[in-house]
Computed example of a mutant assay.
Amino acid sequence: MKILLTGKNGQVGFELAKKLSTLGEVIATDREELDLANPDAIRAFIDQTKPDIIINPAAYTAVDKAESEPDLAYKINVTAPEVLAEKASELNIPLVHFSTDYVFDGLKKEAYVETDPTNPQSVYGKTKHDGEEKIRAHAKHVILRTSWVFGSHGNNFLKTILRLILDKESLNIVGDQWGSPASSSMLADVTLKIVDTILKNKNFNDFGTYHLTNEGETNWYAYASFIASEAMKLNLKVKCAPNQIHSILTSEYPTAAERPLNSRLNTDKIKKTFVLELPHWESEVKKVLREVI
């Protein structure tokens, strides 16, 4: 069994590279081995390796930078998935692809379900949305939309807050954007179960789009305060305690790309289909903090 994995140095790819080896030979790639901005290189690599399944967590994820680099974001988030889907169709193999809450505009009051209309508001969101559409042209696909990814590897909000509370005496954090943090470890565990299910069941027909985050919801301000509080419990000597973190509005912190105010994703579909119990985001944050402090 050959598993082609992109983005092995990203947050999710790093965890997947460690865990997928229980299912078969993992061909784990990064930009050096597989340049996703080069369609011909993708085709040649797949022709050479002939995988049994493709897993694509790699993406252009620099949300603000994408506003000034739309062509590169398009190549990696739209053209590359299109080529992966074409090759998967040729080989008649499954394709697992990761997407984002940014395909929505964030104006819904409740958590988004998979069938809700999309309306991306940024270059990043639009390219991820268009990438999803390219993936859907291939019958055997699983699209996993997630949000607010964090883990012990790579750059993320949790590690940024840890750095800032050591350096700053106070912080202003946006408090009107709501979502559910998703740990890279959980995402890898669930992906492992999905891949195992697909490979073991020749009649698997639950392909499609799924939402996947940890349980619970929060906002960036409450999330930062929780990180600081838990870090102090682990005896981290901080300059900025939770009571020195202040909530501000999105309008007070302008960014190049627009962020959805509501990033909450309803995970009922994936829990029911794959019989999952998802851990709460707070327990996953505690676990990661123990790893990095």
Results as ranks from 00 to 15, higher is better:
189 D>E: 14
53 I>L: 04
95 L>M: 06
152 S>H: 10
227 I>F: 06
253 Y>Q: 09
10 G>F: 04
233 K>R: 15
72 L>F: 07
135 I>S: 15
77 N>P: 08
22 T>P: 13
122 S>R: 03
222 A>D: 05
126 K>A: 11
213 T>A: 06
9 N>I: 00
122 S>Q: 04
283 S>K: 04
155 N>S: 11
43 R>W: 03
222 A>T: 04
233 K>W: 00
242 P>A: 01
171 L>Q: 02
177 Q>A: 07
282 E>R: 07
144 L>A: 09
34 L>T: 13
210 Y>R: 01
199 L>H: 05
219 N>Q: 05
123 V>P: 03
158 L>K: 11
95 L>C: 05
253 Y>F: 11
121 Q>P: 04
70 P>G: 12
14 F>P: 02
105 D>C: 07
70 P>E: 05
274 F>Y: 12
76 I>C: 06
76 I>N: 09
210 Y>H: 05
258 E>V: 15
220 W>S: 11
139 A>Q: 13
35 D>R: 13
217 E>R: 04
250 T>F: 08
184 S>V: 13
248 I>S: 06
74 Y>D: 00
138 H>Q: 11
147 S>A: 14
181 P>L: 00
66 A>F: 05
208 G>R: 10
132 E>A: 14
289 L>M: 09
130 D>K: 05
139 A>W: 07
208 G>H: 14
7 G>T: 06
163 R>P: 00
118 T>N: 12
122 S>I: 06
184 S>Y: 09
23 L>R: 12
130 D>W: 08
285 V>T: 15
227 I>T: 08
205 N>H: 13
242 P>F: 03
274 F>H: 12
277 E>P: 01
190 V>E: 01
9 N>A: 00
95 L>K: 08
146 T>E: 00
214 N>V: 02
188 A>F: 15
79 T>V: 15
276 L>Y: 01
150 F>W: 10
198 I>P: 03
157 F>A: 00
